[in-house]
């Protein structure tokens, strides 16, 4: 039980999923789309788009591919793998 509690606390502290992205730039380049419009395109909430743009949330492969497809770009251009991501 103690191990479970400790891992839960660690999980809470280490909020994973930080990811640099060009989503905001692509959103403006594709006709100044609003966050809500992008969210509706891929059936997610606006808050999730906000979190992705801020780099607080790393989307799944499926969502990344969907976003890239809707914004007529590639996942590699939309999301940037930084040096500390490789560690």
């Amino acid at each position: 039980m103690i191990i479970y509690i400790v891992t839960s606390i660690l999980d809470f502290i280490m909020l994973g999923g930080l990811m640099k992205t060009n989503l905001r730039r692509f959103r403006f380049e594709r006709g100044e789309l609003s966050q809500q419009q992008v969210a509706d395109m891929v059936h997610i909430s606006r808050q999730t788009v906000v979190s992705i743009e801020k780099g607080d949330y790393a989307p799944s492969v499926k969502l990344a591919l969907l976003l890239a497809e809707k914004l007529e770009t590639t996942v590699e251009q939309l999301f940037i793998l930084e040096e500390n991501d490789r560690v």
């Binding site: 999980d11 809470f12 999730t48």
Partner: peptide, 28 residues
Amino acid sequence: RKYVDERQLSIHYRSGNIGFAVLLIVCA
């Protein structure tokens, strides 16, 4: 599933884990 996006689901999972841990501590 179709009414919750993946980020919200991930938040539910994580908050559920933390809530469960708190519940165990309180029960103990």
